[in-house]
Amino acid sequence: MSGIALSRLAQERKAWRKDHPFGFVAVPTKNPDGTMNLMNWECAIPGKKGTPWEGGLFKLRMLFKDDYPSSPPKCKFEPPLFHPNVYPSGTVCLSILEEDKDWRPAITIKQILLGIQELLNEPNIQDPAQAEAYTIYCQNRVEYEKRVRAQAKKFAPS
């Protein structure tokens, strides 16, 4: 494992614990031996107030490669969400998460999670990743928002 990646992720964890947006979660997972795995984080993004996503808490896994922060983490909703920019596998399609697009090593975990929260309610229809959600979003916004509200209710924190 890269010392650069681990040191950056340790800084990220410290900064997150000191200050993070209300309702968001970002925690490194534990290895079988109980030690912390900084390369694999369990996160959760709350649906934004005043949107059909409100009330939901959407679980996301963030996986970092050894060359982080040169390369972005892979962000994957578990379980996958109904959304035009979420692949059926759950992987998020967002330009700041793509090395050859808008990724920059200075982007923080907090910025990534806030960017994904923004994307939930403002899909990028130029870059669809899920045919069904994309089609319904474009053709029947009322039905799309109904499905999103049902999903938010399903993923409401207990």
Rank of each mutant, 00 (worst) to 15 (best):
K153D: 15
I112S: 07
E78V: 13
E12I: 01
V148E: 02
A129Y: 06
S70E: 09
I112P: 02
G47Y: 10
E143G: 12
V27S: 08
I112E: 04
W41N: 08
Q151M: 02
S71T: 12
Q151I: 09
C138P: 00
A131K: 10
A129G: 03
C93V: 09
L97A: 11
C75P: 15
G55M: 13
G56S: 06
N85C: 04
T135S: 11
T135F: 11
A150V: 11
A15T: 13
E98C: 06
V25M: 10
A44W: 09
D33R: 01
P157G: 10
F64T: 04
P79H: 15
L94D: 07
V148Q: 01
T108F: 15
E99P: 12
T108I: 15
I136H: 07
H83D: 04
P46C: 10
V92N: 00
P32L: 12
A44C: 03
P157M: 07
T135I: 11
E122N: 13
L113A: 15
A133E: 01
A26D: 04
K153Y: 05
L120W: 06
N37I: 09
A150C: 10
P21V: 00
K49C: 07
I45S: 06
G50S: 12
E54K: 14
K49H: 14
S89Y: 15
W53S: 00
P52V: 08
L114H: 09
N124A: 08
L63A: 11
L94M: 04
V86L: 04
D100W: 05
G90V: 00
D127S: 15
P123E: 02
F24T: 04
P128Q: 02
P32E: 10
R147K: 13
L63I: 12
R141I: 12
E122T: 14
E78I: 10
D102S: 14
S158P: 12
Q117F: 12
E118C: 10
W103V: 00
L57P: 05
E143R: 06
P80Y: 14
A156L: 07
P105R: 05
N124H: 10
P123L: 04
A44K: 15
Y87W: 06
G56V: 00
K48Q: 09
N31L: 14
E42Y: 12
S89L: 10
R61Y: 09
K153T: 08
E132C: 09
L113D: 03
Q151V: 02
G34V: 05
P69I: 01
K74R: 14
K18T: 07
